[in-house]
Amino acid sequence: MAKRSNEPFLWSLFSAGGMIAALVVPVLLFLFGVAFPLGWIEAPGYGSLLALAAHPLARLAVFAICSLSLFHGAHRFRFTLYDGLQIKHLNELIAIFCYGGAVIGTALAGYILWDI
């Protein structure tokens, strides 16, 4: 029997994460990373931002955003190393490093969101 490949499953995570990241990351990074620090837009106060972040639906959405974006990033970065640096012989090591990082990041996101 031929060995079943994990590649389609990993690719589906990559693809879902790529879509979700493309849709939500630019606006969030613009607001929190550029517009609020530079004072272009007034940053939300602690209370209102906490209320938003603590909402169950927001936590669920943020968890999905974090986890899928991480798997997207891990998959893409894996092939950046693979193609860009031509280190195909380190394939297993790179895969463990990349997806392992995404798994750890997902667990961390779950913990942080649970703990708000």
Binding site: F32, I65, S69, G73, F77, G105
Partner: peptide
């Protein structure tokens, strides 16, 4: 991909 990972860390 690195920018996306960085953003998740920031978030």
């Amino acid at each position: 991909s690195l920018a996306v990972i960085y953003f998740v860390a920031l978030l």
